[in-house]
Design a protein around this nucleic acid. Structure first.
Lengths: 174, 174
DNA sequence: ACCTGAACACCGTTCAAGT
DNA sequence: ACCTGAACACCGTTCAAGT
């Protein structure tokens, strides 16, 4: 890659991170202007707003992959609940990072597959401990969690998560 | 209202109903053009796309208010499930009518309050029959149902609704 | 060869000009 | 007095023109 392009890309990323922290819904045009480049330059480096967000907030998506540390510290059911709470906490913020996580999960790409894999580990652990209904998949759990992207109220979110957890664990034996 | 305005309003509604049936995501500009009026004319009659949709599809929202006929034909729990299935069926279509129902429910306006009231009747019936957890509100149920606006797959939707129903009915006694 | 940004085709919204 | 639509300020995207 040419040197000037490298510089521009780095500048766009730095400026975007700073600007999006203040206004999560800022569009690419103003970001380009703040970075001192034309809109086409941003578009070349990042084909869409979603690509830029995923580049900026890879770490937040990666954090969802670490199920191992949850499983060593908690029993399976509690580990699952804490993972889902982590997801809900993201949704509540409405931040650009939250938008990135949402995009990663819903766009059926490699990110989504990896997160589903992580959740599968949690579900498998719960199933092994007989703390989970037997007929549920990670994809269905993520669909069920869609609500976290819409609403913000924390008390409501907690109560809804209780319902989700009870639905997931529903089983004659439990 | 002046006669020409009345004519224009009727024409906009007729054209919009026809055009939105073919492309649910059609915007107000093309609708105005198809109706042979300027965009400001549409904007005057309908302050936003949402207002137009709610005017066109009032019937679909009203249909959600008829809980009485569900309750006379089914036991409370089954009535609740059918009502939620009706909601999910709307979401699956992605039609303009579905967008209207979504807007009505989520915009915290009078429509939303009336639908919550209808759902409250179902929940009260279930509670009276001891077929429902005691700590859930209609607002929380609607939050939980957010997923219906995102995903489309019917089999997944059915399985997720099972989880929701089990979560809602979770109770030591049941 | 690769990057750039003026230009294009849209969007929602407004308000001066009409009747 | 009320309705109208050209005009405005945006958006995402492209591709001829630069280096």
């Amino acid at each position: 890659m040419r040197y000037d392009a490298e510089v521009n890309r780095a500048r766009i990323i730095a400026v975007a991170r700073h600007a999006l922290a203040q206004d999560p819904n800022l569009t690419l045009k103003p970001i380009a202007e703040l970075a001192g480049v034309g809109p086409g330059t941003v578009y070349r480096h990042f084909p869409s707003r979603e690509h830029l967000l995923l580049t900026l907030y890879t770490g937040e998506v990666e954090a969802l992959l670490d199920t191992a540390s949850l499983l060593v510290r908690h029993e399976p059911r509690e580990a699952l609940r804490r993972w889902l709470e982590q997801l809900a906490a993201h949704g509540r913020t409405g931040s650009a990072a939250s938008q990135a996580v949402r995009a990663a999960l819903q766009s059926h790409g490699p990110h989504s597959a990896r997160v589903r894999g992580a959740l599968d580990e949690l579900l498998a652990a719960c199933r092994k401990a007989e703390q989970l209904r037997t007929d549920v998949t990670s994809g269905e759990v993520l669909v069920l969690m869609s609500y976290v992207w819409n609403t913000c109220g924390e008390p409501v979110g907690d109560r809804v998560l209780n319902i989700v957890m009870d639905g997931l664990c529903r089983d004659p034996r439990l």
